[in-house]
Amino acid sequence: MTTPAGPDPAAEAATVAAFRRRVGVDDLIDVHTHFMPRRVLAKVWAYFDRAGPLVGRAWPITYRHGETELVERLRAFKVRAFTSMLYPHRPGMARWLNDWSADFAARTPDCLHTATFFDEPAAASDVTRALSQGARVFKSHLQVGGYDPNSPTLDPVWGLLSDADTPVVIHCGSGPVPGAHTGPAPIAALLGRHRRLRLIVAHLGMPEYEDFLALAETHDRLMLDTTMAFTRFTESTIPFPARALPRLADLADRVLLGTDFPNIPYPYSHALHALESTGLGPAWLRAVCRDNAARLFRL
């Protein structure tokens, strides 16, 4: 497949800079970006190319570039810190993914060292090892992994992460298609046992937006990221309910910028403009696009 050029780098950097000026921030912090071993990312892109069953629709990758260029794109946007979200889809993957991610973070100082785990007997030892390597944030993907967050095997994992006060970005909403263990009920049960757990619900929990807002209103350590929310791509099929915008505004200190870069079917700048289109204002955008994550990760 021919690699698409994507948006012009200089023009898009200028567009993002204009957004930052309007909002009043010098830089951004993106808690939901994907960097993976080359062969793994190639397989992820191939899955999107064929609109696999967990995608459910055409999904052209906008930034189909090598690792160095992807990092430079984020730096050109003045993304001060970003993650390397990666996730296993079967047992035996998490440890070597974590080793790769530790190396990536070591050579990419603006990356928040990211790790992952799977529902398997080695999960607790994998998490312990990743924490000892310096992991600052974890990714859990219930849709792709197909595991129950309330599995007894994972109970020690959640305990370790609670004790370490380490955030977990968790794809637990039922979008773009439901999984066996997605939706708000498993997360409510999990938080009932681990109230100190610091979860970041990816994609604002789409399509169960209001259910996850309700959880955030009940659990003051639960946060949400904005990945793909309010974009034309998402609004065409999974729109955020306008009636819930005041509730999102009230949670201004617990919403974080996420984008899914580079695995997005539109320019990065559109994700920012989509947030601006909510009308929630510059103060909300400053909190979401920089201040909340800066506080969470002590940046």
Rank of each mutant, 00 (worst) to 15 (best):
P184S: 11
V23R: 01
M36E: 11
R243A: 15
I61Y: 00
G66K: 12
A122M: 10
T108W: 00
D8F: 10
L272V: 08
H113W: 10
T259S: 12
D103P: 02
P246T: 04
P262K: 13
A115E: 06
W284I: 14
V31P: 01
D110G: 10
T3L: 04
A244P: 00
F82Y: 06
Y209I: 10
H141N: 10
V144Q: 05
L299A: 15
V169C: 04
L97H: 07
T15C: 11
G279R: 13
L28Y: 00
P149R: 02
H273T: 12
F138R: 00
A274D: 02
L70H: 06
H141P: 12
I29H: 00
F19S: 05
P239T: 07
F212G: 13
D163G: 04
T116V: 08
T108A: 05
T166S: 01
W100L: 11
L161N: 08
A189L: 15
A76R: 13
H89I: 13
E120M: 07
F261S: 09
F118C: 10
A189G: 13
F35A: 07
L190W: 04
H141W: 04
I61P: 02
P7L: 07
S277N: 11
I264T: 02
C111I: 04
H34L: 11
P262M: 09
V255H: 00
H113K: 14
H181E: 11
R75H: 13
V31M: 08
G52I: 02
P37C: 09
L74S: 10
D260V: 06
D148W: 01
F240S: 12
A242M: 09
G92L: 13
L296N: 11
M206Q: 14
T278A: 06
F77T: 11
Y87W: 12
H32S: 03
E208W: 01
D155H: 15
S236R: 15
R286A: 14
R50L: 15
P53L: 09
R196K: 14
L296R: 03
S132Q: 15
A252C: 08
T83Q: 12
W284K: 15
A164M: 02
H32F: 09
Y147L: 06
I61L: 05
E120R: 10
P91V: 05
D250T: 12
A216N: 04
T231Y: 02
A164V: 02
H89K: 14
V44A: 10
P184G: 11
G183L: 13
R50S: 09
A10D: 10
P282H: 14
W45E: 15
F230A: 06
A123N: 08
R286G: 11
R247S: 08
V25L: 08
A123I: 03
S132R: 15
P267C: 05
S84D: 14
A188P: 00
